[in-house]
């Protein structure tokens, strides 16, 4: 039972990070019908750039939380600029091209960013300096650290804010209208290019925050970290129904839980034949199952359009 609660906690933390990244995929897909495969790299650059700032300030005497906050405040605008640039360079020129073309530039962009990060930050793992208080609390036999609580609360607040933005503001309404029919949205006076840029800016800001959360939670960052993380968040977005915003949140949380519970029990279930390092298998197993049995995802397409 203690394993169960513990893995639920771990799964929710991991899942809320997946959800933040998955939102970036789903927002862009909703508007452009394009999978931005370079999105995982934005997460990675968010993590590494924040970590660079955090390491610089670690000995400055500022409180740990303030140092991390400054790291986030540097990483967010940097990633927003990066996301904006990716769209301008790799996708906008190919707006009218066959769908395969931007997919290829997305993969190319991902490789370029990974290599640039390797040149800039090196091949080594960067560890997160121990500046955050290592306190926490017991829940029965399970344990949740204050950092995990902070991640959960911050992720929940960001997602609530995003829902408000999308459902209650003029920009959000224009984003939804553009996602449904860009030509008609244009007739209403919506500048489609501006909406697309806004979508990349928002997704990249979420990616930056998620990057810092990952590196703080696992105390590590690396130039290749964006690849698997990006694929898993993409899986989460597909699980929830790609293009569907609440779906990405649900998909992220579910995927985190599935992975965490799977890793916690896979040893027992296979009599010790497979260990928790098979954790990554679950995400892709889920991806295959969803694609085979419910390609529209859990929350995809709920409104039937009448004539």
């Amino acid at each position: 039972m203690d394993t169960f609660i513990q893995q639920i906690i771990n799964g929710l933390v991991l899942g809320s990070i997946y959800a933040l990244v998955a939102l970036g995929y789903t927002l862009v897909y909703g508007i452009l019908g394009l999978i931005n495969f370079a999105h995982g790299e934005v997460v990675m650059i968010g993590a590494l750039s924040a970590l660079t700032v955090i390491k610089l300030l670690a000995g400055s005497g500022l409180p740990g939380i303030a140092v991390v906050a400054i790291g986030v405040l540097v990483a967010v605008p940097l990633c927003m600029a990066l996301g904006y640039g990716i769209e301008r360079v790799a996708y906008r020129p190919l707006r009218q091209a066959p769908r395969l073309a931007p997919l290829i530039t997305a993969i190319g962009m991902s490789i370029v960013l990974q290599q640039l990060a390797m040149i800039f930050w090196g091949r080594n793992y960067h560890s997160f300096p121990p500046i955050l208080p290592e306190t926490g609390r017991e829940i029965g036999d399970a344990y949740i650290s204050d950092l995990q609580i902070a991640i959960l609360l911050l992720a929940a607040a960001i997602m609530a804010g995003l829902m408000l933005l999308i459902n209650r503001t003029r920009l959000g309404r224009a984003m939804r209208a553009t996602a449904e029919n860009p030509q008609i949205a244009g007739l209403m006076g919506v500048n489609i290019n501006a909406i697309i840029s806004a979508t990349f800016l928002i997704g990249s800001a979420l990616a930056a925050v998620a990057g810092v959360m990952v590196s703080a939670n696992y105390s590590i960052a690396h130039y290749q970290m964006g690849f698997i993380l990006g694929l898993k968040a993409f899986t989460a977005a597909v699980l929830g129904g790609i293009g569907n915003v609440p779906g990405a949140m649900l998909g992220g949380l579910l995927l985190g839980l599935i992975e965490s519970l799977g890793a916690g029990y896979i040893g027992d279930l296979t009599g010790g034949f497979l260990g928790s390092h098979y954790q990554d298998v679950f995400a892709f197993f889920v991806l295959i199952l969803v694609l085979v049995f419910r390609p529209s995802g859990l929350m995809g397409e709920k409104v039937a359009e009448r004539a």
Partner: peptide, 29 residues
């Protein structure tokens, strides 16, 4: 997208309402 601000509006063939937006939101658009 510059036309509507100049007072020129098109009601397209097949209506083109935003099916996933509410009626009020369509009007707001």
């Amino acid at each position: 997208h510059e036309l509507i601000g100049a007072g020129l509006a098109l009601v397209p063939e097949g209506r083109g309402v935003f099916a996933r937006l509410s009626v009020a939101e369509n009007l707001a658009m």
